[in-house]
Simulated scan of single mutants.
Amino acid sequence: MASAVDPRFGAALREFRERRGLSLRCLGQLAHRSKSHLHELEVGLKAPTTDTARHLDLVLNAAGALARLVDAPVDHAAEAAELRLRVAASDVGKEVLDRIEQSVDDLASAYPTMAPADLLPLVRRHLAYVGRLLDGRVTLAQQRRLLVAGGWLAVLRATVHIDLQQRAAAAAHLRAAVDLANHAEHSELRGWCLETRAWDVLTQGDYRKALDLSRQAQRVAPEGSSAHIQATAQEARAWARMGDVLETRRALDRVERLTANLPVPERAEHHYRYDPAKAAAYTATTLAWAGDPGAEHVARAVLADLDPNGDGGARPRRSASARLDLGLALVAAGQPDEATALAAEAVASGRVVPSNWWRAAEVLARVEQAGVPEAVTLRELCDQYAPRRRPTADSAGR
């Protein structure tokens, strides 16, 4: 029986393989495993069985290290609880604090382009470092900076866990992020925690709760802040999923007003700094869900902006999502052939993360219903690239 995916296993497997100077193909030949299976183990897309871990231990002379990781998976709740218990005291200088805050920004900026399984170990390492520093002695001002940095890292970690469909781990780290935000009295961070919960429950089909959490986030976050804007956009998504086109449009109008004079942030790819370009992408997704005829025009404009040369652009994950959004809009507009081609491009890019898989699944279901011959090829691609645990068609990515 497969265990839960532990990101430490993939990192350890890669380290032992590289120590032996083996490529994935060579290791596959020695271990009688396919190259693709070993790759999925290393990047965290599949969990190893105990037998597989023991066999790889023998092949790589790892002295049982891999099997021990399978037998003793990460206790996410315990890790989060440890961090939460460290919020009362902290001996660090300005240089260290500046470096930590820079790392938080770097990781949040890597989120749109880095694979979740690769980003997770980096976030964990920095979060553990902040936890250790919270054991030292610092001034109140320094302690607050650590609490805020830890809060951002905890909510980012929760987001990555949601992307990987690891909801128990996500819930634990969201609770830790809320505790840190409350201790630091950081209202925008509190708003992001609520917005992230809203996104998570939306992916699980609880649209009414998503609507309530989105509104709570708007009340908590500072007016006009990134969290406030994102929560407003999330409200529009909830209304769209409930089929209320009028309320969907009203929420999108509020997003448009909030972003009308918003400057592009210094690091537009930063997940927690609202980029005005996001408004158009969210509008495309939301209108497609609501079945609004305006979805196609907006979705085409978003894709053209993200990927003008058709090569994935600077933000390949967003480009893949934009193709799927346009595919949904085209199916609704009675153009299933182009929708199938766009969905196939998105899936074959390998950039559709687990929490975004609903988009491909929904396009596939609709083009199959339409009887498009090319739907057979799209299904084959979906079977090839789908994550080990598929979200339902109601799931929604960032």
Score class of each variant (00 low, 15 high):
R351H: 04
A339G: 09
R167Q: 15
G191I: 01
V367D: 05
A47C: 10
D91K: 11
V264R: 13
L306E: 01
L211A: 03
D325Q: 12
A110L: 11
R33C: 08
L153K: 01
W152C: 09
L326Y: 02
R99S: 10
A277Y: 11
E185V: 04
Q142H: 13
G205W: 10
P387W: 01
L134K: 06
G21H: 12
C26V: 05
W289H: 14
E269I: 12
R190C: 10
A301G: 07
L287K: 00
L22G: 06
L134S: 09
Q369T: 13
W199N: 08
L122S: 09
A158D: 07
G312N: 03
V201Q: 06
A386C: 08
G397T: 02
K35G: 03
D118I: 08
S355N: 06
E266W: 08
G371K: 05
G350W: 00
A268H: 11
E195P: 02
Q335G: 08
P112Y: 01
A62I: 02
L262I: 07
E380T: 13
E362Q: 07
T50F: 04
P73Q: 09
L107T: 11
R86A: 15
L60H: 02
G191W: 03
Q102Y: 09
N182Y: 10
D105H: 10
G150E: 01
D6T: 01
L174A: 03
E296F: 03
W152K: 14
E195A: 15
H161V: 10
L324P: 03
V87P: 15
R19N: 11
T49K: 08
E40W: 10
A341N: 10
D91G: 10
T340P: 10
A281F: 06
A333H: 11
A80M: 14
L56K: 00
A280P: 14
A62C: 05
A361E: 06
V178H: 14
L342G: 04
A141M: 12
E188L: 04
L147N: 05
A128I: 11
T286G: 08
P112F: 01
L364P: 00
G291K: 03
P48A: 00
R215H: 11
P265I: 00
A172Y: 07
E101Y: 08
T203P: 02
F16D: 06
D98W: 08
A221D: 02
A47I: 02
H55V: 02
L120K: 06
A295F: 02
A108N: 11
L164M: 14
I162M: 04
V104I: 12
A301P: 13
E266G: 09
V138G: 15
G28W: 05
R267P: 15
W152P: 12
E266R: 11
E188N: 07
K209Y: 04
L342E: 04
N356W: 03
P354R: 01
